[in-house]
Design a protein around this nucleic acid. Structure first.
Length: 214
DNA sequence: CCATGGATAGCCT
DNA sequence: GGCTATCCATGGT
């Protein structure tokens, strides 16, 4: 079977906002052991929402301060930065920019399209076959439509912090076309401190071709 | 709207 | 070392 191309170091080693925009439409893939213990299966989906996090000038970024936790954001691009938040959820970012320049893109939502039933199980959701919901339209809702949800659906925890997305066989991003030219919503963060430029800069990108998260 | 609950950062003694 | 605020998420009300 042919292997889809994987995003390279060069892809990630660019301006954070550019990478956040370019990740839309690509596929986040996670390989996990099959439930019968033999072989492995793919979990994943198309990235439909991202958010750029900058360096010292971005108060909402963990790299606002250089600490042991945020040090990874100052390192090699294409590495996964996973953090645990609110005592419950994990969030996965892709490190951006050349070494020494901090930056990361938070992956906020996926459109699940591989082994959705397994991802639903990992989310604690009902089997769509026995659900009253229409599987054709509702089986995807709630599975990966949020940064914490997609990590739970894909089994991403702090153990995946530092994984090289350009080299790992268990966690990576595949090229699945670009959404350049398609409809994308870019919005600044509101309610954060910083100068006028920082507040008005586009940070979050939502792919409007499919239904984004609610 | 509100409760949740673990890792982290910063400040303290 | 301890102690506390914060974390712009999620699920249930």
């Amino acid at each position: 079977m042919t292997q889809a191309a994987r995003l390279s170091r060069d892809f990630y080693e660019r301006d954070t906002v550019t990478v956040a925009r370019a990740l839309l439409g690509q596929r986040l893939v996670r390989i996990v052991a099959a439930t019968d213990g033999r072989g492995s299966i793919r979990l994943g989906g198309r990235i439909c929402e991202t958010e750029a996090y900058g360096g010292p000038g971005d108060p909402a970024s963990h790299a606002f301060r250089r600490t042991p936790r945020s040090e990874i954001m100052f390192g090699a691009a294409g590495v996964a930065y996973v953090y645990f938040i609110y005592g419950t959820h994990h969030c996965i970012n892709a490190v951006t920019e050349p070494p020494g320049v901090p930056g990361a893109v938070l992956i906020r939502a996926l459109i699940p399209d591989e082994n959705v039933a397994e991802m639903r199980r990992r989310r604690g959701m009902a089997d769509p076959a026995t659900s009253a919901l229409d599987p054709a339209t509702s089986a995807l809702r709630g599975v990966a439509d949020g940064p914490g949800k997609l990590c739970q659906a894909l089994g991403i925890t702090l153990a995946e912090n530092g994984v090289d997305l350009t080299a790992s066989d268990a966690l990576f991003v595949e090229v699945d076309g670009s959404v350049v030219g398609e409809q994308v919503r870019a919005t600044p963060r509101v309610g954060v401190r910083g100068d006028a430029e920082a507040r008005s800069r586009p940070w979050r990108f939502i792919w409007l071709a499919p239904a984004p998260r609610s």
